[in-house]
Write a protein that binds this DNA or RNA. Sequence first.
RNA 1: GCUGAGGUAGCCUAGCCCGGCAAGGCGCCAGCCUUGAGAGCUGGUGGCGGCAACGCCACGGGAGUUCGAAUCUCCCCCUCAGCGCCA
Length: 430
Amino acid sequence: MIDLELLRKEPARVEENLGRRRNPEYLRLLSEAREKDAAWRACLLEADGLRRKRNELGRAIAGARTRGDPSETLDAEAKSIPQSMKEVEAREAQLLAARDALLLRIPNLLDDSVPFGKDDSENVVVATWGEAVAGAPGLKPHGEILEALGMAEFDRAHRSSGSGFYYLKGPIVLVDFALQRFALDLLIERGFTPVVPPYMLRRAPYEGVTDLADFENVMYKVEGEDLYLIATSEHPLAALYRGEILDEDRLPIRLAGVSTNFRKEIGGHGVDQKGVFRVHQFQKVEQFVFCRPEQSAAFHEELRTNAEEVFRRLKVPYRVVNVCTGDVGTVAAKKYDIEAWFPRQKAYREVVSCSNCTDYQSRRLGIRMGKAGRTGKVVPHTLNSTAVATSRALAVILEQYQRPDGSVQLPEVLRPYLGGLRELTPVAAS
RNA sequence: GCUGAGGUAGCCUAGCCCGGCAAGGCGCCAGCCUUGAGAGCUGGUGGCGGCAACGCCACGGGAGUUCGAAUCUCCCCCUCAGCGCCA
């Protein structure tokens, strides 16, 4: 949620910023929210006046009765108030609810450094690492390799659970866990506290962390319960301190979330329909930070550096893009994507998303910061970034490290976590 | 799932039976005192609206009764404890 005070004081600035998202709907929401706010304030004044009168009369009646001198005139006058109050108070509540509902649908304000553009084709490359070398002609898609190795069941998973699901079997499971542990150790070394969060959240906290449209498009809802399966551990981590005042002396808070993530909508189908690149369920180690407002730009770079380090150590070439205004999403003020080089597809594809959400999530979640024992009005900033999503990392490793004979070498950096396993070779079919 | 106890300001608590301006403590801030810190003493302390004077609001949420609800009635939510079930 954007800052209401800012909207009142500098509406032109807010409007200009929202305009950069090139969606006229947002400007409409904005002007409507301003109208409702003004109407609400006028209505509040009116209601306050009535309440004042009621309180004064109430006190007069109580006083008269204490003196043993009840007044019928006062009683009669007091009786006439509730009727008019009912109407005004209903209008006031309705205006406030309408304003807040509008505010919840307005996206975050964009950072000035976000490039202007219509969609992901206009994202701006800000860094590249490693050499993007096209793979040999015989390279197989990662899903085919997994099946050939006997380490995945796609057809059976599609029958048991539907498309977008998979069984991983055998040594590839160890690689999945190794990736998570490798990323987690790297983050712990850099001051992050590992966290296994709830994999389901109630609706109210969930509305604090995400775009309302996600509820229909992205999230799985548990039938008969007020619970949603998490789409990323970012969400329960953001909700961890909902409604609390963070002690500013204990900021920043660096958390490393480890979870399975569930997503209903998984995007278009392409070359790698069979595989783990786009799936309804995957493991991820996530970076999350609560910090002072003035620090968030620096932390955004820190999270990006950590994520880059994961892929450098895996020796997977990548590039970093500054995601443009049309592609940045509702919650983020600025977002970097890291795109790994897939040598068979001869393309860079997204493996990491790294966002500075500024005060948007904190404000929706009612999180403030302050000194111990005092109430804070300052709203802390939140940031999140993938460290590693194993589905995507496995996909790129299976392409990058594939050998002509169909076996797959494993990244050296994972060896401490693999108990002597150095390569993937076919296992007996079952 | 059953039974019980609860939800009051940044935190902890009283008030509820019996309706009439929400009391106290901790913490925090300021002043006094002190070589300094602490202690002690005094005052202050949340949100919203308003240029301001000031007003209103705030007792989990909603509805009702009433001139007036933390307090009475109804519905709902959440937390904790015990029991049950369970990897």
